[in-house]
Write a protein that binds this DNA or RNA. Structure first.
Lengths: 344, 344
DNA sequence: TTGAAAGCGATACCAT
DNA sequence: ATGGTATCGCTTTCAA
């Protein structure tokens, strides 16, 4: 059986309270008492029982992280940073994937209220389905990503501006016929009751920015050049781009709504024998680690992911501190990284 | 204040025990009693306190997952599967990254003994530093990956055979001068006290397989063709491959010890203007999702990741079930996926 | 500064 | 089938 504070107290000849004081190091303990307790602590190889501590304190020392799809390199980068930066604050991270069923978000909310996690970082697919819009008291929650709301704190980038800037970069390169890959399903094709494809909120905002830039350049958006995807994956992008190329001349450029999509599009173009750069250009979004190393290196939208995650944790800490101030919204700046994939 | 079993019991006019019985649904409860309790449950929006339950039951319903580096697409795939398959068993997943400091493995072990997690899936970098080799009783642990041990259960692939098979594939394609990227630092270059580079155990085993295949073909391994890396990353691989190309003619083929490495090597070859396939071939290891979509599509070693993770969870469940049988070892089969990157 | 005792919330044993 | 009660391990009043 594992040692408890009582065992330690008995061995050290003190009371459980004193042991607790030593462990938590808040009040002053006489050095010799402290030494005796520490001796007993290590002698018995004492490990505190977190469940008991959590029950007593009402805090678990863990936060939850809910991402739509853990499979993507982007998710890996976010997870990596959340784990590292949360660790610095002494928090553990429980991870959850929500794309499979929106229900999962509610599960996590429940777990939060069940005191299994003290707070939540949530990347909702779209706000309508999101559990945060539910009635009732919320645990500390911070949203990352694209949905529009002011119920809880949020960290995001300006998707519309970023998409506009990237499209502008393509226009500046002299490209006129610019396809967008990852746009939302056209309304006409939406079937009632079906779940939206992943990334819907981002898809809409990025499409808006793309349209704005085109229109500002006097180019009417062409629905034929908007390629919707079942999923924001290389598979989906390669398949959709391949089908597109069967029915259309290669456009001057493809604006892919994530780098992961761009990898699929590049693959389809390679298969079809379309030169990149040369015949078509390709740009992505997110600046994942791999995008510098794909062939050709990928022009993309970058933002400081560490700052992004750090902000999320700051906001969460604010909430967890019992701060009832108005939810805050942090917008992390972005910039275009031009690389060979959009060279002329 | 949130409702407790007591509150529910009072409202339903029953005892806490009955409420517990209804919630956990083990023993029979009279339908009308059950109905009253369920009514009260939802009326008070009851959420069980996991800390309390954990304290009482000695189980938290969570498992820990410790990977060296969460940043890699491979880690993302493993994490994705662990979360999904653990969810099916009703387990939550707490995630930890260990490459930064080996210390972290001990932290997780501690957390396990602190009953914050009921079991652990550990991918140790190398066994020497691993916390599982420490003395003392271990919580339920399953190792995934490459180290040789028989202290705890383990799921792995046959790295030596896989590397041999892949090298043989390259030989079969007619390549003779085959470089390996990701080999362990030569012993002479190891500085005392410095931490091993990530993936050391795998690096050694894959190097062994590579050597075996070469020797079987009558080709003496050439240390000049063994390219060590600081880290198994695209950056590291691109830099090392670039340096290699400055001093050497391009070899017939590069055997990269992960797909992530291969992406970096492909990038460096592209930058140097070396045709792939054509002048050099490139092969990877792991068959990450992206490898089918890189340019050119990457020959690699595949194994069923779902089976891999499912086995790990099976083994863990065995341990967590209090089974004290001998640790088991599951070897998941592998196969070579030939793609364009090693075409002649 | 330290000790004694109560209590966090859920569950299991022992009754009935 | 259900109720009373002790208990898990820790922290925190309240006293001394």
């Amino acid at each position: 059986m594992r040692a408890t504070v009582k065992d330690v107290a008995k061995l050290a000849g003190v009371s459980p309270k004193t042991v607790s004081n030593v462990i938590n190091g808040v009040v002053f303990v006489r050095p010799e008492t402290r030494a005796r307790v520490e001796q007993a602590l290590s002698e018995l190889d004492y490990v505190p029982n977190m469940s008991a501590r959590g029950l007593r304190n009402g805090r678990s020392g863990m936060i939850g992280l809910a991402l739509p799809d853990l499979l993507r390199p982007y998710s890996a980068e976010v997870t990596h940073l959340v784990v590292e930066l949360a660790h610095q604050r002494g928090w553990g991270v429980q991870i959850q994937q929500t794309a499979a069923e929106p229900q999962r978000e509610f599960d996590l909310l429940s777990k939060a209220r069940a005191h299994l996690v003290d707070g939540l970082i949530l990347n909702p697919i779209n706000l309508d389905d999101s559990a945060v819009m539910t009635a009732g008291p919320l645990p500390p929650v911070v949203l990352v990503g694209d949905v529009e709301q002011d119920v809880v704190s949020q960290v995001t980038i300006d998707n519309v501006a970023a998409a506009r800037d990237l499209t502008q970069h393509l226009l500046d390169q002299g490209f006129r016929r610019i396809a967008a890959v990852g746009t939302p399903e056209p309304a006409s094709r939406k079937v009632g009751g079906s779940t939206d494809a992943p990334g819907t909120a981002a898809a809409r905002l990025r499409t808006d920015g793309y349209h704005e830039a085109l229109e500002a350049a006097g180019i009417p958006p062409d629905p034929e050049l908007e390629i919707a995807l079942d999923s924001w994956s290389p598979e989906g992008a390669a398949a959709a781009t391949g089908r597109f190329l069967e029915g259309h001349e290669p456009p001057d450029a493809f604006f892919c709504f994530t780098d992961t999509i761009a990898i699929g599009t590049l693959s389809a173009l390679w298969t079809a024998g379309v030169a990149v750069p040369g015949t078509s250009a390709v740009a992505g979004f997110d600046n994942i680690l791999e995008s510098r190393f794909v062939v050709p290196p990928l022009t993309t939208v970058d933002f400081d992911r560490r700052e992004f995650v750090q902000s999320a944790l700051d906001l969460l800490a604010e909430r967890m501190g019992g701060n009832d101030a108005k939810p805050r919204r942090v917008v992390v700046p972005h910039r275009i990284i031009p690389r060979a994939s959009t060279a002329r």
